[in-house]
Amino acid sequence: MVATIDLNQMTPGFSDPVFNSQETFRAILGAMAHPGRIVTAGSALDSPHPLNRASAAVCLTLLDFETPLWTDLDSDHMAIGWLRFHCGCPVVQNPSEATFAMITNNDAMPSLNKFKTGNDECPESSTTLIIQTSGLSSMDGKRLSGPGIETFSTLKMEGLTERFWQDRQIQFTMFPLGVDILFTCENTLAALPRTVKVEG
């Protein structure tokens, strides 16, 4: 049984759904096209705890009733009700059914191979992960190279486990299969598409 959405506690989403989602889409596009580049999103948004503003903006922009969402939040959590109300997305119990995954607790995050990695015919039918981090900066950190990066870029994401990076290395060898990742922190985000090689 799916929990009912408590509309009495509901807060608004984008103040201007059309323009705000276009703006956010442009930001995500820029981040995806230039892996490692930090862009801003959702600055004016009142996001429900524990989602940060960038995560909430990404969800409002990309999710709809045809994009199943997996998240590590409890199913009756207010933030889930908020996502279901504003995006209309179904919430699934199994990461392998999800088109998007929202991760708020990196320590308990499932291994990357638990998500959809696509298949040879449709490698794009994979999960896009939105991972909340406690810090995001382009000062030192990981060394990224690949399409969209002239030489290399650096990106530091706080709070990710060693196991996560091992998983990511394994997935990199599976290209074109794999997951794409958006890291968010407050009102900023950066992308790590499956095409990018991570070192360090």
Partner: peptide, 8 residues
């Protein structure tokens, strides 16, 4: 009143 979701 206020809009939780504006007319769309």
């Amino acid at each position: 009143y206020r809009h939780l979701r504006k007319p769309e």
